[in-house]
Computed example of a mutant assay.
Amino acid sequence: MLQQWHQRTTAGKITILACFIVLEGLLDLIVIPIGIKSIGLPSDFSITLAKVIELGVILGLNALMLRQRFYWRGMSRRSIITVAICLTIWCILMGVGKHSWSRVGTGILIGLLAAIPEETMYRGVVLGNLIRVFSGKHRVGVALWVSTFLFALAHVSNISSQSAYVTLCQVVQVLGLGLLLGVFYLRSGSLLASMAMHFGLDYTVTVLNGFTASSADHTRLISSVIISAIYGLIALAVYKGAHHAPRLITTNDQH
């Protein structure tokens, strides 16, 4: 399979990846929601089931079309335990004071449902695959930006449940976030790192603001641009500040 992959042209590889993204999107946005809606399940359970099925679709399509390897071993066991402890403490601290424990539970659920399938899709499959597709000394940077753009573009689908303005603000903010998550995946060599960061951010936002999108005022777009820029600057510092080659890149070169 790997030999056949290398024998394909760059255009052929991009075509297969594009088909994978389109097919996953159609199943995620149309087929899965229609199927779950026809069953008539409660809202919270429907969302959870949809995300679980989405993760299964991503893994299944990847196995059939791309066979992109997922990288988990970049983080040591001690690092994983440390991150888990820190996230647990953070979840508890966010529940103390003015925030209700029910909102904490919602935050944990939303954080997991967003982080696991989205990181598997856009960092695990798309970014990892694009690094194999592109060539040249700038291939990693190009792959990082393309996967980040696709990640942000995927959030346009949220316009079905919120205003166009709020969706625009979300897409702008996600551009910086996707860049940061991609850099953490590259530098850590572990999908767990980007999943943990994604979970922590979504959990915090949900506990602070609730599940529904906040009101669309004229300052929201400005704050989204600022937050996105901060994410981008941190990503640049992490990417440029390391003195060793990204583990994910080194491993991908072995294919």
Rank of each mutant, 00 (worst) to 15 (best):
Q3F: 09
Q4A: 14
Q7H: 11
R8V: 02
R8L: 13
T9S: 14
G12A: 08
T15P: 02
T15G: 14
A18D: 07
I21Y: 05
I21W: 08
V22N: 04
L27Q: 08
L29V: 10
V31M: 10
I32H: 09
P33K: 02
I36G: 07
S38G: 05
S38W: 13
G40M: 12
L41E: 02
S43I: 10
F45T: 14
S46M: 06
T48V: 12
A50H: 07
K51L: 02
V52K: 01
L55I: 04
I58R: 02
I58M: 12
L59G: 08
A63F: 13
L64V: 15
M65S: 06
R67E: 13
Q68M: 09
R69N: 05
Y71W: 12
Y71N: 01
W72M: 06
W72P: 01
M75D: 05
R78E: 08
R78Y: 10
S79M: 11
I80C: 06
V83E: 07
V83L: 09
A84N: 10
T88P: 06
C91Q: 10
I92W: 15
M94T: 00
V96M: 15
H99W: 09
V104L: 07
G107A: 06
I110W: 12
L112S: 03
I116Y: 03
Y122A: 06
Y122K: 01
V125K: 00
N129T: 11
N129V: 03
I131D: 00
K137Q: 08
H138W: 11
H138M: 10
R139P: 03
V140S: 01
G141C: 05
V142F: 07
W145G: 00
W145Y: 08
V146M: 07
T148G: 01
F151S: 02
L153I: 12
A154D: 03
V156L: 10
S157I: 10
N158H: 12
I159G: 07
S160L: 12
S161C: 00
S163I: 05
V166L: 03
T167H: 07
T167I: 09
L168C: 11
V172A: 04
Q173T: 10
V174M: 12
L179M: 12
L180S: 02
L180M: 12
L180Q: 02
S190K: 09
L191I: 10
L192Q: 00
A193M: 14
M195V: 04
M195C: 00
M195Q: 01
A196L: 08
H198L: 06
L201C: 02
Y203T: 01
T204W: 15
V207R: 09
N209M: 15
A213N: 02
R220P: 01
I222W: 13
I226C: 05
A229T: 13
A229N: 04
Y231Q: 07
Y231R: 07
Y231F: 15
I234V: 15
I234L: 15
L236M: 11
Y239S: 09
A242S: 15
H244Y: 14
H244D: 14
A245E: 15
I249N: 07
D253V: 04
